[in-house]
């Protein structure tokens, strides 16, 4: 073992991946932090001497930028409505799927997972058609119930809700699989004992199944929350942040500042505010979880 200690082999094995990660994940963090204190833009890209340090100017500007404030508000709107919906929907479906093991249940597992592996542009194309005010299927079905046309993507608040529906549809799959794996890890003997004691279905659900899913629920909540705070693809492909910035999220704001207006420094500052918000929310959840297990 001693001679292996200075062997070059382990380094040869890890080198390709670690070098790539360093170049495209570690160094970029440092670069982002540095440029967030500069006024780097398209001019600075061509000529580095045109870049100057402006301290916390970008961060200050962000908090007086109406579009940024709106994007923060929208992101909270998405998170507060979307995250509970995804968790409840994926948990309910996992509970139903866990009921049996025959081919029917396997088939439905695949059906519910499908949206989560579907390409986002294909999703945008399909849902754009479904949501279309004149020719869309949704408005046609509603017209059968004599409901007036709904402007799915044309009114700021309705558009936000439309995007949430789409994102919940797409977000169920992966969380459902995690819940299902956790459900299958619960020993059968617990259920048998409960049945022997004459526990009702609801009692089993609330006093055995849900408490034993605590860790899976925590994991799903943390990852879903992190994911939804970075809500990006849905408004990007469906509405481009419109109408009237009604659907713009923080992540989309960063993208637009960076790649549409080439305000690299400003966008980098925005991304660090988002990063800080994610860390605060995540730490807060771990604190809550600790308290919960202490009790």
């Amino acid at each position: 073992m001693k001679q292996l200690l200075n062997n070059r082999h382990p380094y040869m094995f890890i080198a390709p991946a670690v070098i790539l990660l360093t170049l495209f994940s570690v160094i970029p963090i440092i670069v982002a932090l540095v440029i967030s204190f500069t006024d780097m833009n398209l001019k600075g890209l061509a000529n580095w001497s045109a870049i100057s340090f402006i301290g916390l100017e970008n961060y200050k500007d962000l908090f007086s930028d109406a579009t940024f404030i709106k994007s923060v508000f929208n992101t909270f709107f998405y998170v507060i409505i979307g995250v509970p919906l995804v968790i409840i929907a994926s948990l309910s479906i996992a509970l139903l799927l866990n009921y049996g093991t025959s081919w029917i249940f396997n088939t439905f597992r695949a059906v519910y997972y499908m949206p989560s592996i579907t390409n986002i542009i294909a999703v945008a194309v399909i849902w754009g058609y479904l949501y279309n005010t004149e020719y869309g299927l949704f408005n046609y079905l509603l017209s059968l119930l004599t409901v007036d046309n709904i402007p799915w993507l044309e009114e700021p608040t309705i558009a936000k809700i439309s995007l949430i529906i789409l994102a919940v549809w797409k977000g169920i799959g992966i969380n459902m699989i995690i819940f299902l794996a956790a459900l299958q890890g619960i020993p059968k003997s617990y259920y048998e004992a409960a049945e022997m004691d004459g526990a009702s279905r609801l009692q089993v659900l609330f006093y055995i199944t849900l408490p034993l899913l605590r860790y899976a629920t925590f994991f799903v909540t943390v990852t879903t929350l992190i994911g939804w705070m970075q809500f990006f693809e849905e408004p990007f492909v469906m509405t481009d942040g419109g109408p009237l910035d009604g659907t713009i999220s923080i992540a989309l704001f960063i993208y637009q500042e960076g790649f549409r207006y080439s305000e690299f420094g400003y966008a980098a500052a925005g991304s660090f505010i988002l990063f800080a918000m994610i860390i605060i929310v995540t730490v807060f959840q771990f604190k809550l979880q600790k308290k919960d297990t202490d009790l």
Binding site: L5, H9, P10, L274
Partner: peptide, 29 residues
């Protein structure tokens, strides 16, 4: 393998998982 800096490099790899894509997007470009 046992090698010098194994733990530290591995933690660095894990740490990169927590960085949101929006932060690295512009610098990578």
């Amino acid at each position: 393998y046992e090698f010098k800096g194994r733990e530290r490099i591995f933690y660095l790899v894990l740490a990169t998982m927590m960085i949101p894509g929006q932060v690295t997007m512009i610098p990578v470009y």
